[in-house]
Simulated assay, not measured.
Amino acid sequence: MKGCAIVVLVATLAGMALTARLGVWQLSRAAQKEALQQALDERAKEPELPMAAIAHDDQAAQAQHYRRTHLRGEWVASATVFLDNRQMNGRPGFYVVTPLKLGGTGESVAVQRGWVPRDQLDRTRLPTLPTPAGEVVVAGHIAPPPSRLYEFSAAASGPIRQNLDLGAFSVETGLRLLPVSLVQEDAPGAASDGLLRQWPRPAVDVHKHYGYAFQWFALCVLMAGLYVWFQLVRPHVRARQGRA
């Protein structure tokens, strides 16, 4: 019996340690998103970043993330890609990414132009997007490259992709892509191009992490309570009843 009791104690302590650790991890995820949102809000208040000041290396790029800017250049429509399995307002679809060749520099920036819904009957059928020729001015904020999702197969090379690696995309297209992307925002008075730009805020789902943390901590407490009841209180009560 002593050996069995030790096994139960060790299993309970291990379960409590795991669930407590998972609860702490969820709290850290919430804190990270809140800090990211705060950084976004603070940098959004800074003066617009001039196009000529956009970073050319990864370290400098991190300091510019979320800064607002206007880019002037020409769309490289032939290099447009559709990032699959991206949601906006709970609907599945694609993020549309098109390189913008910056005027007078020979360099380009990958622009996250917006979101389009997926065709419910044929997921390979892509919408025709109005992409004006000639010089355009695109408003938005500097951001890291599009977030990566898990992909089961090798990286695709067609217009529909799961992820986009800027280095590989630069080699593929022959464009000198800078190590940032631009998240396009709606400009007042601009003509509609059919793209949705209700970009999610980093901390929009922070309450989800608090909820998960509560569940893990509650499970930890439940394990402790069950151990105390079945291993300590209940045997003691039975022993007292046997002596009565």
Rank of each mutant, 00 (worst) to 15 (best):
L18S: 12
T69L: 12
A191D: 08
L177Y: 09
K208D: 12
S147D: 11
A203S: 11
R86F: 03
V97I: 13
M16F: 05
P188G: 01
L164R: 04
W216G: 05
F82L: 04
V109K: 08
P235S: 02
N89A: 14
L177K: 06
L18P: 01
A110P: 03
P235T: 02
P159E: 13
L83P: 06
L195A: 08
V109D: 07
V81S: 00
L149T: 02
R113T: 09
V237P: 04
L9Y: 02
A61M: 10
V237M: 05
N163G: 04
V136R: 10
Q62P: 02
V116Y: 14
R161H: 15
H236F: 06
L222A: 11
R201F: 08
L195V: 06
T105M: 03
F94I: 09
L71R: 09
P132R: 00
W25L: 04
G194W: 07
K2D: 09
Q62W: 03
H141F: 15
V221S: 00
A77L: 02
G15Q: 08
R176P: 05
W25R: 01
R43I: 03
H65V: 06
L226C: 07
I54P: 08
W75Y: 10
A168W: 05
H70Q: 15
R176F: 06
V183A: 02
H236T: 05
Q241V: 11
A55P: 10
V10E: 06
A63Y: 02
P117V: 07
I6P: 07
V233R: 01
Y150S: 10
D165P: 06
A63C: 04
N85F: 11
L196I: 13
W216Q: 06
A239Q: 11
Y210D: 05
A35K: 10
A213F: 07
G225M: 01
G189V: 08
A31V: 06
S157T: 15
P47Y: 13
V221K: 00
R68G: 13
E74S: 12
R43F: 03
V221L: 12
L27C: 09
M88F: 04
T98S: 14
L177D: 10
R86H: 11
Y227Q: 04
R67Y: 06
G140K: 01
V116H: 09
G93Y: 01
